[in-house]
């Protein structure tokens, strides 16, 4: 379970304080798929960075499986990171390494032996449907295939949490559907908690169980997707849902 309590983060932008996260509290159940939705600048990416330990908040806490990430030293944080997979916006693949090496990367830095890496990478390649592409370089892949590599890489160390930052923002609608299907499959097969940060209502509607609506660093609304999207209360939710309301 992920427990977030009173999280606050301020950035200095041109010497002006910018409140990116304003007293955010939430609970994310194990093995659920949660969508964090909001417009650009709502604080989604900051929240994701705090969750992955890349940015430390000004105040508040994050408990992941009962462990507070704020209290961790660099070494503990590194070992925690192996239990959190992140699919970054824009894939962020190593362009000079082939598909196999990209997926193997988190395992290599974690110090697994060659044989284990070999077997695990082949499992992952199968999982994301890229068999036969192991020796290709990212530059030769389509956007959807690159995203599959990024997902496989994020899943390499068997994380209990998978964070996805705008996982479909650069993909066409058909590929988006395929990637969504893959995420659901991974959620079920690998028992992983998935958190998707997005500005696309369709993604949340099609695969998320829970939704959290962020605006200007605050949670405006949260709950089951079926409830929130059929009966939106906050103005921003209505705005995001667009024509339908």
């Amino acid at each position: 379970m992920i427990k977030i309590t009173h999280l606050t983060k301020t950035y200095q932008v041109n010497n002006q304080p910018l409140l990116a996260l304003d007293n955010i509290s939430m609970l994310i159940e194990d093995k659920s798929i949660t969508g964090i939705i909001g417009m650009s600048g709502a604080g989604k990416s900051t929240l994701l960075r705090v969750l992955s330990g890349l940015v430390s908040p000004d105040s508040g806490g994050v408990l992941i499986d009962g462990m507070a990430i704020m209290d961790m030293d660099a070494k503990e944080l590194r070992s925690l990171r192996k239990r959190i997979g992140v699919v970054f916006q824009g894939y962020q693949l190593l362009m000079q390494k082939n598909v196999f090496k990209n997926i193997a990367f988190p395992l290599e830095i974690a110090g697994y032996d060659k044989e284990y890496i070999h077997n695990r990478v082949h499992q992952l390649v199968d999982l994301v449907g890229l068999s036969g592409k192991e020796l290709q370089y990212p530059a030769k892949l389509s956007g959807g295939q690159m995203q599959r590599v990024a997902i496989a890489r994020a899943m390499a160390t068997n994380p209990s949490i998978l964070l996805c930052d705008e996982p479909t923002s650069a993909l066409d609608s058909v590929t988006t559907k395929e990637i969504m299907k893959l995420l659901v499959e991974i959620n079920q097969k690998e028992n992983v908690t998935i958190i998707i940060v997005t500005h696309e209502v369709g993604i949340v509607r099609s695969i998320c169980h829970h939704v959290i609506v962020l605006d200007e660093g605050k949670i405006e609304e949260e709950g089951l997707v079926s409830n929130v999207f059929t009966n939106p209360k906050a103005q921003i939710t209505k705005l995001l849902l667009g024509k339908e309301y």
Binding site: S52, G53, L54, L77, R78, S79, L80, R81, K82, I84, V86, F88, Q89, G90, Q92, L93, L94, F105, P106, I109, A110, R153
Partner: peptide, 11 residues
């Protein structure tokens, strides 16, 4: 951002 993603992997 690539470096950030590698940091997030625990490198």
């Amino acid at each position: 951002q690539l470096i950030e993603s590698i940091v997030a992997m625990g490198a």
